[in-house]
Design a protein around this nucleic acid. Structure first.
Lengths: 199, 199
DNA sequence: CCTACCGATCGGTAGG
DNA sequence: CCTACCGATCGGTAGG
């Protein structure tokens, strides 16, 4: 008799290590420049052994990208459900993005940079996720402008500015200066919502 | 007797075609995922023939990245020389970035995404260029804050927000909606400088 | 500018 | 989880 429960548990845990190391390497070198042999070395096994835990190199990227997408979608669901005003909603979304960029940097970086190498149908699905997310954010801003809560600004441009500004935390990650994560967050919120508020 | 003048002219022009096609392909697929055989096909020759015009795949990436870096540095030189106030200087820099993102999108995209694959010493040189550029921008903002022209904001965070927000034009390039380039530019400036102005 | 070809490395499999 | 190995593809060179 085998012991399926324990075997499963072991596999999951090793798979988690592989995904984590892959996130690190993909972030450092990029998806294509990271070979399964590099990854195997980082994990501490031979390349062939990785395939006992994962299906393919592509499947690792798929898992990283969609885990990230799911986290952002869940947060947006919650924000949408609330009855706060538009500026508060946007601020909540921004704070979530900023914290994800700080706490789960490797995964986020990979999802932002290497989604292009997803295989179909994952690629299309991922892009649909993203387009949908941007539309929902734009709708929040549009409602705020209509209610005269926000400065009159083109909602899609505002979304583009907000989402990419937050990605700029990559600069901060590269050389974490004297600024703390909290200080970074407050200054970003100040700058970005300052451009949305009515003067 | 050979005719060196004409021969040189021919080589330069073919090299320009190679660089242009490479920018396009690197943008679409990424540097590593673009093979010299793909590039040769796009140019209309066999892969081996490319090497009559360029030294290596790496040298193409080098040329793209440094051509971009030089353009931004030249503009910043000009802005610094002027005696305008801080907000005007920042606005001029932003408008230049926005127009570069629109007019020379392929090159800029490659410089932003694939600089990581530059070979040393190019990689270090490129990163120094960038760090220097960010410092000079931060100095402009810092001076504006001190002179009480700008809202009190951490200058390095402001630079990070501004430079990455502008990169968000990638979203716009992916699905150029109903918004014109001019409308995009004015809305971005409104949003980003709105967060810098004193209320 | 081409044909022919090089050594290196890739993702992945067979079999134990 | 390993050894041994596969076909495919890579950047680049020799020689004409």
């Amino acid at each position: 008799m085998t012991m399926p429960a324990i075997k499963t548990k072991k596999n999951i845990s090793k798979k988690a290590v592989i995904t984590e190391k892959a996130s690190e390497l993909f972030k450092q070198k990029g998806y294509n420049a990271t070979s399964m042999r590099h990854l195997a070395e980082a994990v501490g096994v031979e390349a062939a052994s990785l395939y006992n835990h994962i299906d393919s190199k592509a499947s690792i990227l798929h898992e990283i990208c969609f885990r990230v997408a799911d986290a952002f979608n869940e947060n947006l669901d919650e924000v949408e459900k609330s009855s706060q005003n538009a500026l508060t909603k946007i601020e909540r979304i921004l704070r979530f993005h900023i914290r994800m960029m700080i706490d789960r940097y490797d995964e986020i970086y990979v999802a932002n940079h290497d989604w292009k190498h997803l295989e179909e149908p994952g690629l299309t699905e991922f892009l649909n996720h993203r387009r949908n997310y941007e539309k929902r954010m734009a709708a929040i801003i549009e409602a705020g402008v209509k209610k005269n809560e926000l400065r009159s600004i083109e909602p899609h441009v505002a979304v583009l500015v907000l989402l990419s500004a937050v990605r700029g935390i990559e600069f901060w990650q590269r050389n974490k200066r004297n600024i703390s994560a909290a200080e970074l967050e407050e200054n970003m919120i100040l700058h970005l919502t300052g451009g949305l508020k009515k003067q």
